[in-house]
């Protein structure tokens, strides 16, 4: 018998009023000590999955277990095990950063001295020690996001759910949070369930990813395996005129050996083996079809290609926290 999964969901369904089906049979399993990436567009069902697994929302059907505990029947015990930072940093503007973390620690049953000492350390880790005594309302978006992350970790949970933890952060702040997640995972074996709109984030952090589209899982595997599964090169043709994208796609479909063609508003991605040998031929055929080409690139598949192949479209990123800085 294998080790018990840290997070397990079986056929989760969530229907809201008026018949909106946000989740349509999502099953997943995350091993202890794994960083698991959950990719999808806004509205794909990522946040609903997190809200169900963290006991905030009851599923319409299906079941879930966290550390072996049932999310419905043992919700209280589940909450002891997990740390959660939701998509919108849920903070109390009238408290200071330190007060918020100390209160959070007490609500997890930590004692006075221990929580005070740990909070000082935690504030240093998320680089907020200078702002510790300031009211949270004076924090920037990035500072709030870091404080929210710290509040999810205040009781040293075994399993952490992060719903788009770096959305709206600048690259430096994002890098800082990535390093901290990696360190906690490596040194303390913390399991992370991470939703993200950033492919780079999933590629960097996640040992395994799952792509969710309209409430259904459409791809699953390690980033490397998913990219390797495409087993082709990707020739991306940026078309000079949007009206010519259809002609470019027709040309691509007619190529010998082509495995797949995906089009967006301004470009065509052609999946085929030995892409370098095909570029000259593609250029010639496009020229013959009078397709204006703005640029043409050859690359190994990226997670974006994986996403495009799985869903039929690129991952649109919503920055959420406009103007947020660290």
């Amino acid at each position: 018998m294998g080790a018990m999964p840290a997070i397990e969901a079986v056929a989760l369904v969530k229907e809201y009023e008026r018949g909106v089906r946000a989740l349509d049979g999502v099953s997943l399993s995350v091993e202890a000590g794994e960083i698991f990436g959950f990719l999808g567009q806004n509205g794909s069902g990522k946040s609903t999955t997190i809200r169900i697994l963290t006991t905030l929302l009851a599923p319409t059907a299906g079941s879930g277990r966290i550390g072996g505990l049932d999310i419905r029947r043992e919700a209280g015990a589940v909450r002891e095990k997990i740390g959660v930072a939701l998509q919108e940093a849920g903070l109390d503007d009238l408290q200071t950063g330190r007060e918020l973390l100390v209160l959070q620690g007490h609500l997890y049953g930590m004692s006075g001295g221990a929580v005070e000492r740990w909070v000082v350390e935690l504030l240093q880790i998320v680089d907020l020690e200078d702002a510790a005594e300031r009211p949270i309302r004076t924090y920037s978006g990035g500072m709030k996001r870091r404080l929210d992350l710290a509040s999810a970790l205040v009781h040293a949970p075994e399993i952490v759910f992060l719903d788009e933890p770096t959305t709206g952060l600048d690259p430096i702040a994002r890098e800082g949070i990535w390093r901290y997640i990696e360190r906690l995972n490596r040194e303390d074996g913390v399991t992370f369930f991470l939703t993200t709109q950033y492919l780079e984030e999933a590629d960097r952090l996640a040992q395994r990813i799952m792509i969710l589209e309209a409430g259904r899982i459409v791809a699953e595997g390690s980033p490397e395996a998913l990219k390797a599964a495409i087993a082709t090169d990707v020739v991306t043709v940026q078309v000079g005129e949007a009206s010519a994208v259809g002609r470019a796609a027709d040309v691509a479909q007619g190529l010998a050996g082509v495995e797949d063609v995906r089009r967006t508003d301004t470009a065509v991605a052609i999946y085929l083996p030995e892409g370098s040998a095909a570029v000259a031929r593609i250029v010639r055929l496009l020229d013959e079809a009078q397709v204006p080409v703005a640029s043409i690139t050859l690359a190994r598949p990226t997670l974006d290609d994986v996403f495009l192949r799985a869903t039929g479209h690129h991952l649109a990123v919503d920055e959420g926290l406009d103007g947020a800085t660290a």
């Binding site: 963290t54 006991t55 905030l56 209280g76 015990a77 909450r79 002891e80 997990i82 959660v84 939701l86 919108e88 940093a89 849920g90 903070l91 109390d92 503007d93 959070q104 609500l107 997890y108 049953g109 509040s151």
Partner: peptide
């Protein structure tokens, strides 16, 4: 206000 800014959810996520 707590509900709107998500702090109520944060409290619900604790074993309180």
């Amino acid at each position: 206000t707590d509900i709107e800014r998500g702090y109520f959810d944060k409290l619900l996520l604790t074993p309180t």
